[in-house]
Design a protein around this nucleic acid. Structure first.
Length: 737
DNA sequence: CCGCAGAGTCTTTTT
DNA sequence: GACTCTGCGG
């Protein structure tokens, strides 16, 4: 271990081993390095045993990397060192304490999809099917708030303005009860329930505090209230906690991230020492300048400024396009160009965007040019339909109480067990006090239970039982193989959608491979293996398995890019309404978060940054919207950018009418002329590939002006509302009426 | 109970 | 454009 790799501030933070420590570390300032060194330091100096350390990261990938780096520094591996995510740790904790919550250790972890299925069944029963759609996100948000925050369900329901808020608390209680009977936890439970137990049971709390002498938390700015609470419960006020974070990079407010964890750290703990890391080792000064000028516009921010030894550097490029295809073309063109130089490979480059849906045009273009690429995020492997279908069966084998999974697979592929039959089974279970699964098994003896379809139900129950019996003698790969072939899923997918069937089959065989590998070296029983596998898989994300490959361009959202770095970065889709996203524009707090996201994006770049936007963008395959360039671009001084195209002409004309008032009058005159001569005629306005019609006399209004050949018009389409469009006179023609 | 056709929704970000 | 939900005829 070599302290020469650290600067003064980093070294101080690494060695400050007693008491609470807060490390405020800017982007690229080596905050992960501080945690890694600190762990290695504690172990090497004999200040802590491996099992006395609890290190928490944001993703499994970060945890794995950190572990590897620590082992490398120590030149030895150690199984007792725990580094993981909050959720993984919570799952581990709950396995040990499942009984305290009326579950057993074979519980299922419900993801968002499972959670929605469960909630839907409750809401449907309560309010009929009509309202479910609109209520789902609201109720889900409510439950999330209860579990992630610091307010009780009663209070939150009381202060809610929603018209159905009087149902919230009941629905929540019912949801909790069902989770319990299903022997399952949802994602948020993995944090909130350990909290609860530690709060109410001081013996358990003390034993954990004794055990974990050193708690280290990365990305502290993105922890929610309960995660902060969990940390406080694990560590006494004067205990050894190290929190590392950057308030400028807090981008998960929408998920309940609670900046108070950082801001009140000094009040939560005693004699806190604070270290600031402001030297950036990643980016050139030219890139940092841009990042700084944007982030400094956030009013509720602690002033600070990163600096770097890498003076100068190429100015970030600003590239305008007419639509998303042109944007993709220009980006890919540059990727080709850089790749053909000696300095860069495709693997050095990343295309970042605000929403997953924006990846399409880039994919098309990259494929066309035969450049390999990988998309991180979007639909994750373990969330694909066929994978979840199959996992549903596996979950059922491990945890027969899991009604959500049973209902998913009981008629998949269709085997004659419809909604009515499921209801009959449910009623029977309720009347006799047995579980849903027991009702299925009982259907063999009692024809009444399943009604007309009880034969089919009995057959299904028998089949599942036989698989469970098979699990006593075979490993989980064998069981899964048999399950897949006997289920008829593959045939069903083929029939359902021949085009997708191949991918689905590939995905399932990939899953089987994973299962085989998993139990290859295992000496556990089949069901134990399955149980472990399912719990692990429930917390896996896409980014965990991503690794940079030399010849592969990476595409991902700005959120997914957190914590990563690339020599060359393309930040795309920088249009008002897209980034910042429309919903945030009138919400100061949310707009600040968007700005932080912008900051995160720019600071991913090491050598070269591109900022791109399109004037028109297709949405839902139909609407062609005109959007002005992102307001964040206005916050960057012109001289700090290398402007390709005509951004400032456009931007200033649109935001500042007075500056171009001379030309404004010219345009107004032209419009007045057109109006006078074509009063009752219809005009045709061509924007991109779309044509709009309007009546000159009434429909067209000048909003502000553009360059000589362009204008911005507000067009009123009969009853369709107003649309703001960018057009050019060349494309504005009069139809002979 | 199944399958089809048409309608309606959706795009913020994810452990 | 993609996906899910709905209603209806077999």
């Amino acid at each position: 271990m070599n302290f020469n790799d650290l600067n003064t501030a980093q070294a101080k933070a690494v060695r400050a081993h007693e008491g609470p420590v807060l490390v405020l570390a800017g982007a690229g300032s080596g905050k992960t390095r501080v945690i890694t060194y600190r762990i290695a330091y504690l172990l090497q100096e004999g200040l802590a045993k491996p099992w006395q350390i609890l290190a928490v990261t944001f993703t499994n990938k970060a945890a794995a990397e950190m572990k590897q780096r620590v082992f490398k520094m120590l030149k030895s591996e150690n199984r007792d060192l725990y580094i993981g995510t909050f959720h993984a740790f919570g799952a581990r904790f709950l396995r040990r304490h499942a009984e305290a919550f009326g579950r057993n250790s074979k519980f299922t972890i419900y993801d968002v999809d499972d959670q929605e299925r469960l909630l839907r069944s409750i809401l449907k029963r309560k309010m009929g099917s009509t309202e479910v759609r609109s209520l789902m996100p609201v109720v889900k948000g409510f439950i999330g708030k209860v579990k992630n925050g610091n307010e009780s369900a009663e209070l939150l329901a009381e202060i809610s303005q929603h018209q159905y808020s009087h149902y919230f608390n009941d629905t929540y209680k019912e949801y909790e009860a069902l989770l319990k009977t299903n022997n399952s936890f949802d994602f948020d439970d993995l944090i909130s329930l350990p909290c609860e137990l530690l709060q109410r049971d001081s013996d358990i709390r003390e034993s954990y505090r004794q055990r974990f002498q050193h708690v280290l938390i990365d990305e502290f700015q993105d922890t929610n209230y309960r995660q902060g609470e969990l940390a406080r419960l694990f560590t006494a006020p004067s205990g050894n906690i190290t929190a590392v974070g950057d308030d400028d990079q807090s981008i998960y407010g929408w998920r309940g991230a609670h900046l108070g964890n950082i801001l009140q750290f000094e009040q939560d703990y005693k004699d806190v020492r604070i270290f600031r890391l402001e030297q950036n080792y990643r980016s050139t000064q030219a890139i940092l300048n841009v990042a700084h000028n944007v982030i400094k516009k956030n009013p509720s921010r602690h002033p600070k400024k990163l600096w770097t030894d890498r003076k100068g550097g190429e100015k970030p490029l600003l590239i305008a396009s007419n639509d998303e295809h042109e944007e993709a073309g220009k980006v890919v063109e540059r990727i080709e160009e850089y790749s053909s130089s000696d300095s860069y490979k495709p693997g050095d480059m990343a295309i970042l965007y605000r929403t997953n849906a924006q990846s399409r045009p880039f994919e098309d273009m990259l494929r066309q040019k035969h450049i390999p690429y990988v998309i991180v995020g979007g639909l994750k492997f373990y969330e694909r339909k066929e994978i979840k279908d199959f996992l549903g069966y596996l979950r059922l084998l491990v945890n027969p109480n899991d009604v959500v999974s049973i209902q998913r697979v009981i008629n998949l592929p269709p085997r004659g067990i419809g909604q009515k039959t499921v209801e009959n089974l449910q009623n029977h279970a309720k009347e006799t006090g047995c579980t849903f699964y027991e009702a299925i098994i009982a259907a063999e003896m009692d024809n009444e239970i399943g009604g007309r379809s009880s034969g089919k139900v009995a057959q299904f129950g028998k089949w599942i039982e036989s698989l469970r019996a098979y699990a006593n003698s075979a490993n989980m790969f064998k069981v899964s193989e048999r399950l897949l072939s006997e289920s008829g899923l593959l045939e069903f997918y083929r029939k359902e959608d021949a085009e997708k069937a191949q991918t689905r089959e590939d995905n399932l065989s990939e899953l089987l491979n994973a299962l085989r590998e998993y139990c290859f070296n295992s000496d556990h029983s089949c069901l134990e293996d399955l149980d472990n596998f399912l719990q692990e898989v429930a917390l896996v994300t896409d980014i965990d398995s991503w690794q940079s490959e030399e010849q592969t361009v990476t595409l991902m959202t700005l959120h997914a890019a957190k914590g990563l770095e690339f020599p060359i970065v393309f930040m795309t889709g920088l249009e008002d309404g897209l980034f910042p996203i429309q919903r945030s524009i009138d919400e100061p707090q949310e707009l600040e978060e968007e700005r932080r996201l912008f900051y995160v994006g720019t600071t991913r770049a090491m050598n070269l940054l591109h900022l791109t936007y399109a004037r028109n963008r297709m949405r839902w395959g139909q609407d062609l919207l005109w959007q002005r360039p992102s307001r964040f671009l206005d916050e960057i001084p012109e001289k700090q950018l290398n402007i390709v195209g005509d951004y400032f002409a456009e931007s200033s004309a649109m935001t500042n009418v007075t500056r171009t008032s001379k030309r404004d009058s010219v345009i107004k005159k032209k419009i007045a002329e057109l109006r006078a001569t074509h009063q009752d005629e219809y005009g045709e306005l061509q924007i991109g590939c779309r044509v709009e019609h309007f009546k000159f006399g009434e429909g067209i209004v000048i909003q502000t002006e553009g360059r000589d050949s362009d204008l911005r018009v507000l067009v009123n389409f009969d009853g369709l509302g107003e649309k703001l469009l960018l057009a050019s006179f060349a494309k504005l023609k009069v139809l002979a009426d």
